[in-house]
């Protein structure tokens, strides 16, 4: 019987990520990791791509992980976990170890998932390894000092797309990785946010039990890169969800389903205004970028509604 998804029940289990890790105050990544590990009752093995999470949780001679954990390189978290999974199943098959129903997780940031680790991820998904890949998406290479990535939205200021007199922040839209992964036709793909914690935990449970590869893309605010106060982390994440910039949905065996529909779809401006990385967009000469971003959010939202069977035309 799985633990009920009630905080008081979940708190009775030991925490699988210890305090004393050195992620910044107000970082959403450890919130995401704690919620995900709390949702799983079975033993877990974690592979980690290079990134904030990997670096800050394992500063020698300390580790914050209370589960078996491995890091090998930036680009190959998916291949690493695929190898571990294959070795485990082989040893179980040959009777060398008992089958303890171990779950295999890989954590990668958006840099290690959208860009650098994409090839390894795509390959591992295609080979059908039974693992869950979790992308904690903070929308830039935050660990190395906020450089643009494939997940950075249009107009965001980063150190490699600096807003100034020459360019107004990043000039391209972010790519829709969740949809790209869904195109691999794997059993389970989802997009989630830590603010909707129960939704996230239910998705994790579906993912670990789907019998094949699964992928969850979780929005994870970075107050250093997004430029907001440390205590605003969850408020701003909620705004990303309520503006439909970051819709919550799942694709189970090819069937798209919306798991959270905001009561009122807010203008994307509400989310942009709270973050320093978009401050320059509110100057008169850059207002058109907000309109462009809004148009893109609307287009993707309409398409999603159509795919989820909420509307009949895209």
């Amino acid at each position: 019987m799985a633990t009920k998804l009630i905080p008081k029940e979940l708190a009775k289990k030991p925490d699988r990520l210890s305090p004393g890790h050195r992620l910044c105050a107000g970082c959403a990544a450890p919130i995401v990791v704690r919620q995900i590990l709390a949702a799983i009752d079975d033993p877990v093995v974690v592979a980690n791509a290079t990134g904030c999470l990997e670096v800050a949780t394992t500063v020698y001679p300390y580790t914050a992980w209370r589960v078996p954990w491995v890091h090998s390189a930036f680009e190959n978290a998916a291949s690493t976990i695929a190898g571990i999974e294959s070795a485990y199943r082989s040893m179980v098959r040959r009777g060398k170890i008992p089958d303890r129903n171990v779950k295999f997780l890989a954590f990668g940031g958006d840099g290690g998932t959208y860009d650098i680790g994409f090839q390894a991820l795509s390959g591992a998904l295609e080979r059908g390894h039974q693992f869950v890949y979790i992308c904690y998406n903070n929308e830039a290479y935050m660990n190395t000092g906020i450089q643009r990535s494939g997940a950075t939205p249009l107009g965001a200021h980063t150190t490699t797309s600096p807003a100034g007199s020459v360019i107004p922040g990043k000039q391209q839209m972010r790519k829709d990785l969740t949809a790209i992964i869904a195109a691999h036709d794997i059993p389970y793909v989802a997009q989630a946010a830590p603010t909707q914690w129960k939704d996230l935990m239910e998705k994790v449970r579906k993912a670990v039990n789907c019998g094949g590869p699964a992928f969850i893309n979780v929005l994870s605010s970075c107050n250093r890169g997004w430029r907001h106060e440390t205590y605003e982390t969850l408020e701003i994440t909620q705004l990303a969800v309520d503006t439909c910039y970051w819709p919550l949905y799942e694709v189970e065996n090819g069937v798209w389903r919306l798991t959270y529909k905001p009561k009122e779809k807010l203008p994307v401006e509400e989310w942009l205004r709270r973050q320093g990385r978009f401050r320059h967009l509110f100057r008169p000469e850059n207002r058109h970028l907000i309109d462009e971003l809004q148009a893109e959010v609307d287009r993707r939202w309409e398409r999603l509604l159509f795919l989820c069977g909420e509307t009949f035309s895209a």
């Binding site: 305090p19 004393g20 300390y62 580790t63 209370r66």
Partner: peptide
């Protein structure tokens, strides 16, 4: 590192 979660010492 021989002990998991020893970051509590930090």
């Amino acid at each position: 590192i021989l002990e998991g979660g020893n970051a509590v010492e930090y």
